[in-house]
Each structure stands twice: as C-alpha cells, then as structure tokens.
Amino acid sequence: MSLESSSQKRSVGIPGYHIRPKYDLKRFRERMNAGGDREMNVDLPLTSMIDMFSMLVIFLLLNFSSTGEAFFVNKNLKIPEAENAQPLESLPLISITTNSVSLDAKVLENDGTPIDFRDPEMPRLVYELHRLKKIQANFRDAGLKPKTQINIQADEKTPVLYVKRVMTILINEGFTGINFAVREMSSPEGQ
C-alpha cells in the first residue's frame, strides 16, 4: 500500500530543472523565475548608432569627389605637395621614377630593360608619343577636340635633370602644355 502511494506521488510530480550545471545560466534562470516584474523585451538604443552614422556620412562627404576621375599614382613614387595647385584634368600621364618612365601606367622598356635616362633621345618614349599623336589626330578627324596637354608625375627625389629631359622630348613632339601632378596641401591659413 505504501509502495503504491509513493509511485503515484512520483508520477504526478512536476519535472524539475534538468539542465546540467555546465550549461546552466544560473543568474539568467533566477531572473526569469523572479516573476513578471522585469521587462525582458529590451529595445536596442539606436541614438548612438545614428550619431555614429551621421558622423561617418559627414566625414565621407568631405572626401567626396564628384568629378569621377581616377588618377593612377605609381606605388614607387611619392609626389610632392603644393598649396596653390588647380584641379587635375584627365590627360595622358607620364610617370618618372629614378629608374623608369611610364606612359599611362605602362613602363616603357627597350627589350625588357627600362629606358635609360642618360640617353637624351629616349626613342621608346618618342615612339609612344607618336602613337599618342596619331590617336589624337584620329579624334580630330572624327570632329572631336582632344586635349594636347600632358600630365607628369615624378618622385619628389627624382633629379630635375631627368624631368627636364622628358619635358624636352614632349616639347619636341608638340606637347607644350605640361602639368605637374602634386598632392594638394591645405594652406596654413585654412583657405
């Protein structure tokens, strides 16, 4: 009789907490069991997030460029800074480092070796400029007005002698409008 009653008691018992202690979030369980006095549906605070987004947007707006023009800066050169420069135009670009000359990101080579600055004639550069002139002439024949200027970028430690040699060749080939690419430096007066 006593056995029967004890088994009945066990069969109707409410199952207890059975999560093993290793995974038991004890504090959380206690808060959950504490009753309905606490709201567990917490809203994410969005104010700080919107503040952060606003600041990001303002910062990025300051760096925004509406011209959409990309300018290739050779990784081997550091161009000098200038305060009074004008906005850069999209033109053919000659890059001069201490050991190579590139036209529109293509390193000019003579049979696999970069062109020699000691050679004042630089036939490879002259050949490429002739090709460029031909393309411009084709544009002119098609009724367009190609710009005959050219951009030069050079490493800040490149001897001016090398830049002048390239400039002389450009002038001889008819590119008289030469623009030096520089990094824009904000003036100390903040103008």
């Binding site: 987004f53 707006l61 925004f64 420069a85 004008q86 623009n179 520089v182």
Partner: peptide
C-alpha cells in the same frame, strides 16, 4: 549613404601645377 560615399571618397587629393612651355 556610407557605402556610396566610401566608394567615391578620394583619399589622395591630386592636383596640378601648369606650365606652358
């Protein structure tokens, strides 16, 4: 906006000094 501005941001502002040789 952030994604669009990140794509169009200019980190190196390059300008030019012109000479008419």
């Amino acid at each position: 906006l952030v994604v669009m501005l990140l794509l169009t941001a200019v980190w190196n502002k390059v300008a030019m000094l012109s000479t008419d040789t």
